[in-house]
Simulated assay, not measured.
Amino acid sequence: MSEYIRVKGNIVEKTGGVSRVYAKGGIEHNSNGFIDYFAENYTYGEPEKYVSVFPKILYVNGHFYNEDGTFEGKVNEVENEGSAEDVYTCTGKSKMKNEKGEEIVTYNNIQLLKENEKNITHSDFCYIAYVVKMEAGEDDFKELKCIAYTSFNRSINVKSTWKKLLSTSYSSVGNKKEMKSSLDDNKSKLTRKAIFYVLGGEDDLTNGAELWDGTDFLAWGNSEMNPYNKVGQNKFDEYKFIEIPKDIYDSFLAANGNSTKYGDKGNHNEKNDPGTHEHVKKKVKQIIKGKDGKPVLGKDGKPTFEEIEIPSKIKYKIPASDFENKDYWISGNFYYDTGVKATNGISGTINAGKSIFWKLTKIRLTSDNPK
C-alpha cells in the first residue's frame, strides 16, 4: 500500500515531543531548491525499532459498564482472553483502528471487578445489584453506597460471598433475582455505581458497619407493640447495648418525619396494647348472613349488606418514647443498656436516606468513652 501526498503550498509539522519516521526501505529527501536542518546537535546511529502509533488493545471477554452505571455491551469471542461472565467498568466506548488498520469498537480504560481477589461473575453482580437497589428507599447514592458497603462488610465478617449473604434472611427483600443489564433508570445506574465504589476499594463511609435499620427502629423503640404483636424493635433483644451519637441520631430523626404507618394485621389486643400508637380502621360493606350461613335477602331478593370497621393501618409517632427519655441521654448521646447477655453492642456510624447503619462493638465508641 502506498501513500502519495502532493500540495501546492507548504507543509508545516509541529510536535511537542519527538517526531520519528520509520521505513523498511530507505528514506529520501528531494528538493528543487535546498534542504535545511536546524538543530543544536546531530547524532547518527543504528536504525531504531519500529514503535506502533496505535494504542495497545486488550482483547478480553466480559460485560462492560460505564462508570456512571450504564451498560455498554458484552463481548464473547473465542480468541479473546477471559470469560464473558467477567465484569468490567469503563469510561465509554469508541471506534478506532487496530494494527491492521481495521476499525473496531473498543471499551475505554477498562477495570476488571474483583471480590476479595476473585473475579466477580456477572450473575452475582446483577443479583447483588437487585437486592441493594430494593433495600434502598430512594435514588439516594449515599444510602446505596452505605447499604452496599455494610452488606459487603458483613459478608467478610461471616466468611461468606456477598451474593450468598444477600440470598439469606440478612436481607428482607422478597423474590430476589438478578437485575437486568438493560435497566437504565437512575436508581439502577446509581446502584451499580455503589457496587463499583465498594469493589474499587473506595473509602468505607460506614466506618465498618455490618447492619442497618430503617424507620421501624425509631417508630417502635423498645416500648411500642409492633405489627407482629411483639413489643419493640428486634435490635433491643439481640445486642448488649445500643448507642447513637447525637449528630447521627438528629440526622436519622430528621429524615423520617413525625409519624409512619404500617399495615395492621389485626393481631393486637387493644385492651392491653403497649405504647401510644393508633389503630386506624376503615369502613367496608359485607353481606349479612343468617344463622345458617346463607345471605339474608332483602325484599328485592338480593343479598343485604352492613357497614363494619376493619383494621387498616397502625400509626406510630416518631420517635418512640424511649428516645425521648432523658435517662438514655445522660452522656449527650443516646445509650441504652438492654440487659441482654450478648458479646456485642451496636453503635450508629452514619445516617443515609431513612436508614441508620450499625457497627458491632464490645465497648462504647462515643466521645464520653472513646475506643
Rank of each mutant, 00 (worst) to 15 (best):
N116F: 03
N116P: 06
E117M: 03
K118A: 13
N119I: 11
H122D: 07
H122L: 00
S123C: 04
S123P: 01
C126L: 08
C126F: 05
I128R: 06
A129K: 09
A129P: 12
K133R: 13
K133V: 01
M134N: 04
M134T: 05
E135G: 01
E135S: 05
A136S: 14
E138V: 02
E138F: 11
E138S: 07
D139H: 05
D140H: 14
F141T: 00
K142A: 14
E143G: 02
E143Q: 09
E143C: 04
L144Q: 04
L144M: 10
C146P: 06
A148M: 11
A148K: 10
A148I: 12
Y149A: 13
Y149V: 13
T150R: 10
T150C: 10
T150L: 03
S151M: 11
F152N: 15
N153E: 05
S155N: 10
K159A: 12
K159C: 03
K159I: 07
K159F: 01
S160Q: 04
T161G: 14
T161P: 09
W162C: 10
K164P: 02
L165F: 07
L166Y: 00
L166V: 02
S167I: 03
S167M: 12
S167C: 07
T168W: 00
S169V: 10
S169F: 08
Y170V: 07
Y170H: 03
Y170P: 00
S171F: 07
S172Q: 05
V173T: 09
V173E: 03
G174Y: 08
G174E: 15
N175M: 12
K177C: 09
K177I: 11
L183W: 12
